[in-house]
Design a binder for these strands. Structure first.
Length: 221
DNA sequence: ATCCCGAGGG
DNA sequence: CCCTCTGGAT
């Protein structure tokens, strides 16, 4: 029924409901500084935030800033982050990113998308998280595995490429709400619309969801 | 398209 | 066993 309204209006209704459902939604990663958020976000690739938060206290205690990561024994970083997976790539990226931050940015995390994208292991997803939560700059829509899955199921995009999904979402949502959309939809992805077996009966967005409507039509046949 | 990678759930 | 978790580089 409500699927007949425009996609843009549907996106706004989805956003409104999500904000009511998760009024306190924030970045779930633990950090104290922009650099720590950058490192935590690199670590969060294909890994739950909860698991990242289990390794970062010891990691940030041992390596509190970009300078210490830059001159670290990489093996020591690998051991401290091992349980987050992809530990060799992540350790290499964290160290190379920190070396560049020290050499090119005076040891401070840069505050523009263009500069962030020059860092090892940083693409738009990580850059959007850092810009929004460390600096309050809403540059784009964070598209992670949850945003990708839910945006597809809800019918807000048919694209699979994260950059193209972001372009579609940017057209559908008011700019100040871009990060609120990402954060709240991630909460919803974890709680209700999970990858394996989405709980459509408990979902407040079912009346706005093309995936749910398609499932209903299958049952009727 | 494929690789990197461990931990937890079903 | 298989799939998934706030991806990115080759």
């Amino acid at each position: 029924m409500n699927l007949r309204i425009s996609k843009k209006k549907r996106a706004f209704e989805i956003l409104t409901i999500l904000k009511q459902l998760y009024p306190d939604a924030t970045c779930s990663l633990d950090y104290q500084t922009p650099l720590q958020l950058l490192v935590a976000t690199i670590l969060s690739a294909q890994c739950t935030d909860e698991r990242v938060n289990k390794v970062t206290p010891a990691l940030f205690s041992r390596f509190p800033d970009a300078q210490s990561f830059a001159k670290a024994d990489r093996k020591e970083i690998e051991i401290l982050i091992h349980s987050t997976g992809f530990y060799r790539n992540k350790a290499k990226n964290i160290q190379n990113a920190c070396i560049k931050i020290v050499n090119d940015f005076n040891g401070n995390v840069p505050q523009t998308m263009t500069e962030l994208l020059t860092l090892a292991g940083v693409a738009r997803k990580t850059a959007n998280v850092v810009l929004a939560h460390a600096f309050g700059i809403i540059e784009g829509v964070t598209v992670d595995t949850h945003v990708k899955r839910l945006s597809n199921r809800l019918g807000l995009t048919k694209k699979q490429n994260p950059v193209q999904i972001e372009q579609d979402l940017i057209k559908l949502l008011p700019q100040p709400e871009w990060e609120n959309f990402s954060i709240s939809i991630i909460y919803h992805g974890r709680a209700i619309c999970n990858a394996r077996k989405p709980l459509c009966h408990q979902c407040s967005l079912a009346h706005l969801c093309t995936f749910f409507q398609t499932e209903q039509n299958k049952i009727k046949e």
